[in-house]
């Protein structure tokens, strides 16, 4: 690559069909209310963690659904489980359990959490 002074970049596109969606499916199965999320962002707006770090529960949920697992994994431990998001959710999603299950799913499918 040094020969040219530039290199090939990786595409930013979410290649849905190639992504591993087992984590998302695991959550759908154990917390069906996750399906109801419409990505309105009320959870992220009230999130304690999101106020001071680059964490958005809304984005977390989208990435989870799309199978962008590396990005989900990197965000897994931001949540402090305070539960305020559950109170804000207009669709009745058990958001705290979504994160809890995500951690569980990574343990099952990755063999470890992070």
């Amino acid at each position: 690559m040094d020969k040219f002074g530039f290199s090939l970049s990786r595409a930013r596109v979410i290649d849905y069909d190639k992504n591993d969606r087992r984590i998302a499916e695991y959550i759908y199965e154990h917390e069906p209310s996750f399906r109801l999320c419409i990505e309105c962002g009320a959870c992220a707006a009230t999130c304690t963690a999101g106020n001071f770090t680059e964490f958005s529960l809304r984005e977390f949920n989208v990435l989870l659904k799309r199978g962008e697992n590396d990005k989900v994994r990197a965000r897994l431990k931001k949540c402090m489980f305070c539960g305020k998001c559950i109170l804000a959710c207009p669709r009745g999603v058990n958001t705290r359990n979504v994160i809890f299950l995500a951690r569980q799913a990574f343990r099952i499918f990755d063999g470890n959490e992070t």
């Binding site: 930013r12 596109v13 979410i14 290649d15 849905y16 069909d17 984005e59 989208v62």
Partner: peptide, 12 residues
Amino acid sequence: EDTLAGRPLKME
């Protein structure tokens, strides 16, 4: 574009 993920998306 998956506007909520802020990234392009493709699927078959």
